[in-house]
Amino acid sequence: MSRRFNFTGRVKILKEDVKIIIESHDNKLICNVQLRLEGYNLRADAMVVIEAERGRVLRIRHDWGRAGKAFTSDGASSQFDISAMGDPEDVRYRVLVVEQESCRLLATAEGLEAHSTQDGETPQRSLLPIVMRDLHGGVWELENMEESPTLVLDSGLGTKQEIKSSPVLLSLLPGVIRAILTYLAHDQQGEGPDDEGDIADGNTISMWLVQGEKWAGCSYPRTGEHSDIDEWAQNAVTGFCKEKKLRGSLAMAMEMTQES
């Protein structure tokens, strides 16, 4: 579906009327979306679209069906495959109810998060989402730096689960964190503290910078030379390594490798 939507006069769908559950079946990630649209005065023949997205980089659109089938107290559901999104962490969802003839947007629900079938809780956001991809000989790179920095690892290194439980990720993190903090500090040059967004609203960039300031023990340079930002980022990385006891963990991993 590639048509454009008219966003005039839309109704806001309450989050309690939307339930999104992620399940794993046959090595696929299946997203089940249950909607209750009773009482919204929507057209029964309106088209419902679900969008799953991570920043502006990845987006999957699913034709959920007609709004009328959700005009009951129990609502109705539809599911689709989101395996292409990679890690389901930090994926956000949007519900769009659209008048088919005019493409006028009748109702929306924005910024939705999925729940786990195991505990019914919203998955904790990861400050650094990880996706696996063929980097054609590369090892790692960063993407989506303007909204939510994401670490891309080469799929030849192994599965995400294997990487997370191995020393490989530990050894990469200092360089990755330094690159992120340097980029963000440069990008925010000249901005005041009130311009960085509200952390309570989940502004990932602000969360990164606040975390960097905690590790460095001081605020990032809002003006100054590149060397000032570079020094601040390095101090933050050192603070991160101390907090996570990274040196000891890597030394222990090396000893285990030598013994085997």
Rank of each mutant, 00 (worst) to 15 (best):
L128K: 03
P129N: 06
P129G: 06
I130H: 00
I130W: 02
V131F: 02
V131P: 00
V131E: 12
V131H: 04
M132S: 12
M132V: 09
M132A: 04
R133E: 15
R133Y: 03
D134I: 06
D134V: 02
D134W: 01
D134T: 02
L135F: 03
H136K: 15
G137K: 07
G137T: 05
G137Q: 08
G137Y: 02
G138S: 05
G138M: 10
V139F: 09
W140D: 06
W140Q: 11
W140M: 11
E141M: 13
E141S: 12
L142C: 00
L142T: 01
L142D: 02
E143A: 09
E143I: 11
N144W: 00
N144F: 00
M145A: 02
M145F: 03
M145D: 05
E147Y: 05
E147Q: 13
E147I: 13
E147G: 00
S148R: 06
S148A: 07
P149C: 05
T150L: 10
L151S: 06
V152C: 07
V152I: 13
V152L: 14
L153N: 03
L153G: 01
L153Y: 01
G156M: 08
G156I: 02
G156R: 14
L157T: 00
G158C: 05
T159W: 08
T159S: 15
T159K: 07
K160Y: 00
K160E: 15
Q161M: 07
I163E: 03
K164D: 11
K164N: 10
K164G: 00
S165Q: 15
S166M: 12
S166E: 12
S166N: 09
S166G: 09
S166C: 12
P167T: 05
P167E: 11
V168S: 10
V168F: 10
V168G: 01
L169Y: 11
L169S: 07
L170E: 14
L170H: 09
L170F: 01
L170T: 01
S171L: 12
S171A: 15
L172M: 15
L172E: 10
L173S: 03
L173W: 01
P174E: 09
G175C: 08
V176W: 08
V176Q: 08
I177F: 11
I177Q: 00
R178Q: 14
A179C: 08
I180E: 03
L181F: 07
Y183F: 14
L184R: 06
A185H: 00
H186R: 13
D187I: 00
Q188H: 07
Q188T: 12
Q188K: 12
Q188R: 14
G190V: 05
G190E: 12
G190T: 04
G192R: 12
P193K: 11
D194Y: 10
D194S: 15
D194L: 14
D194F: 11
D195A: 15
D195C: 14
E196G: 11
G197H: 06
G197T: 07
G197A: 08
